[in-house]
Design a protein around this nucleic acid. Structure first.
Ligand SMILES: [Mn+2]
Ligand SMILES: [Mn+2]
Ligand SMILES: [Zn+2]
Ligand SMILES: [Zn+2]
Lengths: 136, 136
DNA sequence: TATCTACTTTATAATTATTCTAAACTATAA
DNA sequence: TTATAGTTTAGAATAATTATAAAGTAGATA
């Protein structure tokens, strides 16, 4: 029951009510010992396949957005049609395989930038992301 | 009339018939002395606003896809909902302003990567793109 | 504990970008 | 000139996402 309380506290800490649905989704997302990438589609399957609990697709969209705003998830923009999300919220880079449409993490220190341009005046850098597209 | 012949040859060279529509679109895209970024929406407006010629939206989609496959355009994946295209087909990087949703080129030599990971075995690197997201 | 209220979930409709379809048109090879 | 494969087009279809609004619920307060 400790994991559940952790989740409840995490949610409360972000002003999100710990509803049954959010707790369940948080378990699927954060109770692994490995981070991973997903789309709303794959998350929806993971949640709604084993016949057990059903969470509406709208709630899954709402929750993923809420978790992203709360900083629990990062959105990864690599694909034309679909949004990808990442449970790894540390700054890091990606391989994107255009064949399998799979994202793979590149550790932050696997890429070294020895020169980076200054942002236009009045703007600041929010993040810097390297995407390496792969082909066979 | 030389520009037009250039376009016609370019199209023929890629196995694309030089139709009225493709020539007109190619003029709008490649007859500038500066490269730029666009979406199908903005290109459609540029073409179909001055009341003159009308090209159907389907043709604009078809043509942009054909030009991308032919290597005349690069697709830039930075935005959740919309595809961006670039008339600058040289390898380069981008600022993406999340407020204005505008892309700005970063010259290739403005970024220096002193360390880059090896691709997973069996795959090779198709390209490496740095996107720097800006905020105010 | 009972009540209230703002927040949340949900089914479903709406929206947006894009792709598909199939009929009319056209570039060009023969 | 004719035949044909490629192209354009209006409109339908699809896919992802967002909006709507009614029903449900967490948590504050009496
Ligand atoms: Mn889309
Ligand atoms: Mn979309
Ligand atoms: Zn990642
Ligand atoms: Zn560019």
């Amino acid at each position: 029951m400790n994991q559940k309380n952790n989740i409840i506290n995490k949610l409360r800490g972000s002003g999100l009510r710990p509803t049954k649905q959010r707790i369940l989704i948080a378990k699927k997302l954060f109770d692994k010992n490995k981070t991973f990438h997903f789309t709303v589609e794959t998350l929806n399957k993971k949640i709604n396949k084993n016949g057990s609990e059903k969470i509406s697709l709208a709630t899954i969209y709402n929750t993923v957005e809420a978790f992203t705003n709360a900083g629990y998830l990062k959105e990864i923009l690599t694909s034309k049609n679909k949004s990808y999300y990442d449970t790894n919220i540390k700054s890091h880079h990606h391989f994107y395989d255009e064949g399998t449409k799979e994202l793979t993490d590149i550790n932050y220190n696997q890429v070294k930038l020895s020169k980076v341009p200054n942002p236009p005046k009045g703007k600041k850098i929010k993040n810097l992301e390297v995407v390496i597209r792969l082909q066979n």
